[in-house]
Every structure is written in structure tokens, then in C-alpha cells.
């Protein structure tokens, strides 16, 4: 489940990068969500400096870090002219500040690394909101953008199955990650519904008026 989750996460990022690169445009993509994701990776993968788990683990962490910053570069620099700034108006301080406060209050251990890890988990769970807000504001999304959102939504959903599996087989569970993972997946539910009922039937993702 974890491997499938990771793969679906990687596929989401590749879809997004390819979309921007091939169409030479980042229209419909929320730069703010991408900034939040880069923040998530940067604060979570600080453990690259302290803990070695496996080559797979290290490579994946580096990949998420580099691709998320590459995406930001494409949106805010290379294809800046195509960035839909007027529709990307979600106030991200409403996500950043509460996540930080929550991480300071509810964590496993009050240390810099641990609080930042917790912050990354909380922030990740809501990081997609600017993107979903943008889709709801414009009332539609290109098919490729919906494939990206679908793959990204599947990733945390698959992680929930991984957590159930780990709880059963290793008796390991991390309540912070589980609750945040559920919140994150629930946020995608509405989108999943539209994806299955519209995009998979060859229609464009268009919100009911």
C-alpha cells in the first residue's frame, strides 16, 4: 500500500510537471498549493540529515524536494506569464498559521525536528485547498489537472490502508499522521465524486452552476 501510495504521489507530480512543460503553461494550477507542498517536504525531510532508512527512502525524499521546487520555478519564473494569479487567491496564512500553532500544541515531542515534522503533516493535509479553491472559482479544470488531483488524492488514501496494515502486522500507529491523513483524504472526496462521474466518462470537470 505504501509503495502504491508513493507511486501515485510520484505520478501526480510527474503529470503536473509534464502538463506544464508540454503545454508551456501553468494555467489552472495553484502556485500557492505548490508553495505549501514544497514547505511540507522541506520541513518533513529534515531527517535526511539525521536518519538513513534506505536508498529508496533517501531517493524518494530528494525527488519530492527537487520536483516541488522545480514546479515552483516553472510557475513563478519560467512560465510566469501563464500563471492564473487572479484566480489563485486563497489566503494561505489561514493554513500556515493554524498548522503551526497546532504543531506546537499537539506533537509527540517538543523538539525542533519533531514540531517541524508535525507541522508538515498538518500543513500537508490542507495544502491542496488553494488548488481546490481555484477549481471551484473558475468552475472547471482541464482533464490533465483532474488526473493530477486524482493521483494526489489517492496517495494519502492508500497511506491510510498502509497504516491499517501496519497497525495489524507491526502494532505500529501514529495518531497524528492518521488523523491528518484522514482529513486530507476527506477533502478530496467531493473531487473524487466529480472525477468518477465526469472525467472518467470523457467529460470535462465542470462544477454544477
Amino acid at each position: 500500500f505504501r509503495l502504491l501510495g508513493d507511486l501515485s504521489h510520484v505520478i501526480a507530480i510527474i503529470i503536473l510537471l509534464l502538463k506544464i512543460w508540454k503545454t508551456r503553461s501553468c494555467a489552472g494550477i495553484s502556485g500557492k498549493s505548490q508553495i505549501l507542498f514544497a514547505t511540507v517536504f522541506a520541513t518533513r525531510y529534515l531527517d535526511l540529515l539525521t536518519t538513513f532508512v534506505s536508498i529508496y527512502n533517501t531517493l524518494m525524499k530528494w525527488m519530492f524536494l527537487t520536483t516541488s521546487f522545480a514546479t515552483i520555478y516553472l510557475i513563478y519564473f519560467k512560465f510566469r506569464a501563464t500563471y492564473d494569479k487572479n484566480h489563485d487567491t486563497f489566503r494561505i496564512e489561514f493554513l500556515i498559521i493554524p498548522s503551526l500553532i497546532l504543531a506546537l500544541l499537539i506533537n509527540h515531542e517538543f523538539t525542533v525536528f519533531e514540531v517541524l515534522w508535525t507541522y508538515s503533516i498538518y500543513l500537508e493535509s490542507v495544502a491542496i485547498l488553494p488548488q481546490l479553491f481555484m477549481v471551484s472559482k473558475t468552475g472547471e479544470a482541464e482533464s490533465i489537472t483532474s488526473h493530477y488531483l486524482f493521483a494526489l488524492g489517492c496517495y494519502r488514501g492508500l497511506y491510510i490502508l498502509n497504516w491499517i496494515y501496519r497497525y495489524v502486522t507491526e502494532d505500529f500507529h501514529d495518531l497524528i499522521a492518521i488523523v491528518a491523513g484522514i482529513v486530507q483524504t476527506v477533502l478530496y472526496c467531493d473531487f473524487f465524486y466529480l472525477y468518477v462521474t465526469k472525467v472518467l466518462k470523457g467529460k470535462k470537470l465542470q462544477l454544477p452552476a
Binding site: 505504501r2 508513493d6 504521489h9 531527517d47 536518519t51 532508512v53 527512502n57 524518494m60 525524499k61 519530492f64 509527540h108 519533531e114 515534522w117 497511506y159 498502509n162 507491526e170 505500529f172 501514529d174 499522521a177
Partner: peptide, 10 residues
């Protein structure tokens, strides 16, 4: 041990 487990996930 708890934190070792955690670094494992992405």
C-alpha cells in the same frame, strides 16, 4: 523506535 518507524514513510 517510534521515530525510526516514522522516517520510513514519505
Amino acid at each position: 523506535n517510534h521515530s525510526r518507524n516514522k522516517h520510513d514513510e514519505l
